[in-house]
Design a protein around this nucleic acid. Structure first.
Length: 254
DNA sequence: ATGGCAGACACGGTCTGA
């Protein structure tokens, strides 16, 4: 079983890439972020025609998340319960016995800004809610665009002490790990300078100037099933790509 | 080095992202 996360930066624009990628990789579950479309504009017919189900939490212009899955998703939750938020950043559902939490974490804009404060409040609310989710679901994955590069090796030096790599953001990431979650990517030997996002400008992809900010954190029970985790750079090389690459988690049968 | 790209909305310029 393969579970992936991919910030598509507009589902409307990236739908052909998504459908091609699903057909090529035979991924079972994909968590999508930055749909940038309302629910009524969600391309459900195209996704169902490709053999997938979809649940989504959309928003006009900004944000928006979805879970695309071979098996039907159940027990769907949209947004963090008990956290008032206009922005559509969370969808959770159970697929094949795995609790899948898909998140588009706030960007934060700049350290010390109002949006940065919102990012930290959102992370705190997420952490509190996940504690109860983990109590109810032994096998859980938190997949998404975290907008946090957890360690120095996850960021090109140009971004040191900036947004995505600041001390409070990294502390919030470690608070998620402290719930009993593991960064699946770091369970394995990986090469140097592996990132999941590259700026569209400055030929950043060609120069490999980027950040590893898209993650799959797994609970202990799910960690026992993990057989691999990799970043798939292929879609980033296409014409008109998302600025993020998908990250793929492989699981042994339960 | 934060400018320079990309998408949405709207149809030019602004906002946002990372």
């Amino acid at each position: 079983m393969k579970i992936a996360t991919w910030n598509v930066n507009s589902l409307k624009v990236r739908l052909p890439h998504l459908l091609d990628w699903l057909a090529t990789t035979q991924t079972d579950v994909v968590c999508l972020q930055e749909l940038k479309c309302e629910d009524k504009a969600f391309p459900l017919a195209e996704i169902e025609a490709a053999g997938y189900h979809a649940v989504f939490n959309g928003q006009k212009t900004y944000n928006g998340v979805a879970i695309i899955s071979r098996s039907e998703a159940t027990d769907v939750v949209r947004n963090i319960p008990d956290f008032a938020d206009e922005q559509r950043r969370i969808i959770a559902a159970t697929v094949d016995g795995v609790r899948v939490v898909c998140g588009y974490f706030p960007n934060g804009q700049a350290v010390g800004s109002e949006k940065f404060a919102y990012k930290l409040q959102w992370l705190e609310a997420l952490t509190t809610w996940l504690r109860s989710e983990l109590a109810q679901h032994a096998q859980l994955v938190l997949a998404g665009d975290y907008n946090i590069a957890p360690e120095d090796r996850d960021a090109t030096v140009e971004w040191q002490d900036e947004i995505h790599v600041s001390v409070p953001e990294r502390e919030a990431f470690r608070a998620l790990l402290a719930l009993g979650l593991t960064d699946a990517f770091r369970m394995f030997e990986q090469g140097d300078k592996l990132y999941s996002w590259w700026d569209y400008r400055m030929m950043a992809f060609r120069r490999n100037i980027g950040l590893r900010i898209d993650h799959l954190l797994v609970s202990d029970a799910l960690r026992a099933r993990v057989t691999g985790c990799l970043i798939d750079k292929a879609p980033r090389k296409l014409e008109r790509p998302s600025d993020h690459a998908p990250v793929v988690l492989s699981l042994a049968a339960s």
